[in-house]
Design a binder for these strands. Sequence first.
DNA 1: GTCGCTTGCCAC
DNA 2: AAACGTGGCAAGCGAC
Length: 601
Amino acid sequence: MLDDIQLHLVESLDDVEQMMQWLGERREWLAVDVETTGLNVGCDWIRLCQFGDGAHGWALDWRDWRGVCAEVVRKYDRPMVTHNLLFDSKMLKADGVVIPQRLAHCSMIMSHLADPAGYFDLKGSASRWVDKRARAGQGLLKAAMAQGGWTWATIPVHVPAYWQYSAMDTCLSALLAERLWSETGGGPYREAYELELATIHCLREAELAGLLVDEEYRRAATEKLEVEIAWLQPQIPCENPGSDQQVVALLQAQGAVLFVRTEHGNLSVDKSVLAYLEPQFPVAGLIRAWRQKRRFVDNYLLKFAEVGSKRGLAVEGVLRASTQPVGAKTGRMSVKDPPLQTLPRGRVVRDAIVARPGHVFVGADFAGMEMRALASFAHEENMLAAYARGEDLHNFVARTLYGEAFTKLERTVCKNAGFAKVYGAGVEKFAVTAKIDVPTATAFLERYDAMFPGVKEFMEANVREVMARAGGQRNGTGYVVLTDGRRLPVPGEKAYVSTNYKIQGSCAVTTKQKIVELDAAGLGPYFRLAVHDELLYEVPHPLVRRAREVIERVMPDRINFPGVVLEVDTDVFDRWGYHYREDYPSFIPTEPAPWLTGVAT
DNA sequence: GTCGCTTGCCAC
DNA sequence: AAACGTGGCAAGCGAC
């Protein structure tokens, strides 16, 4: 299939004319792609722009032919497909070129819907669905770059390995779309496909806007942590408390008996081991603190710095992360550079992220989203009734199982049991997280199951269903169906994950629906970030009340999970950490912005 | 010096 | 009988 493809580098007006003639031919899919100097929209730029279909691929040097490329994207009036619509449309828009939303498609989303467990980078998808040799160019390009000492930023456009395989990428993307359309977006997964595309357009605007870093706070917090680290360091008698081997030696020298093993049989000195040792060996606590502070600086605060200062990611004080709309095999989004979904809770790190002057953040999160989804899927009347009464589920469980005078610790056990169900944990793991012994855990789960028989039945039904779909084979593959009709594959030997996949995947669908609905309700320009069950908006302060009203009206969901309302909590704050003001003290005291007073409750 | 594996840890 | 899901990512460390 790839043999007959013709690749062209546009170098003259004659070439442009030929390409234009080719563009006038009729085809299902015109693929568009860009090559850039790197992946960060703030500081990287487009070097090459490519167009292609199943027969021809064209590469254009962006410096010379930007206007031509922009014209093509603007005027072409048939479907255009890119393999990573979010990234390509983001880079193009950053340079003023907009792919019309009604014509924009994404072959990566098609690949994901066709097989959510597969690899869906372009070469991987194309070699699976189009032609096994799709990866061939990759190695040649890499070799050329190595030989010339080039990077993505420096490899000359005229190097054949560069422009040819870049042009070829559009052909692969077009062929992928041709191959997968009817079985994904143009077929059974139309709803899911359209949801993903609509979400991508929201995410692009969010990523282009980015999040502002308070440089003054970032620096002050970094310095304060460095001081604390410098104070801890001499109290820990080893060269590097970050080295597990050294920590093992140190603790053993002090007489500690280590017995917890890592996956590969080494002695473990992780957080929980150190916490366990701390009462007898105070140095363990110091090591734990050292490691956390070191991580806060290295993994987060330094990353929030400007590009150029070691490993910074910000440009003009703004962080623009990259989202994979279907990063997880459950369809959840993932975020990197920086990983904004995993910033430590509390104020130390998150206080570095601030709303722009005159703006505030409006945060909205679904309350107990996954447990509510579980209650609905399982038709678990006792749970649904508790939610209908407006009762806290874990309180309800604790009261039923431990009596009115239940302790906070007992409530935590109940909460852990809920998570254990959602994640598919066994008794042992549940016992560890709940910090109870296995017999107690077993007895507890028995009473929990008696209280919520629907949950147990639902989980067993999921496993049965997956196994049946896997042909009864442990080495076969079944699937679960999500609320928007898409299917997630589940390996037979891990059938127990089916409940988790169904819940996690359907919750991800719901979150995306709400992003899109809020966009339609006018909040699109203010959307900044999604963290699984919470959304972050950055709103000019005169609009805060209205924005909050819109969110509280649009976001609660009563469609996806019948029998239960997905309720939403909102909060208003001017720096991200302030959202945690009730649980954590300010690391470095900061004044709330004047426009926050009267708005934050 | 780079690469890949291992360990550990952050979030939901 | 067994089995805590989904990610991103840094440092250490040994191998090349």
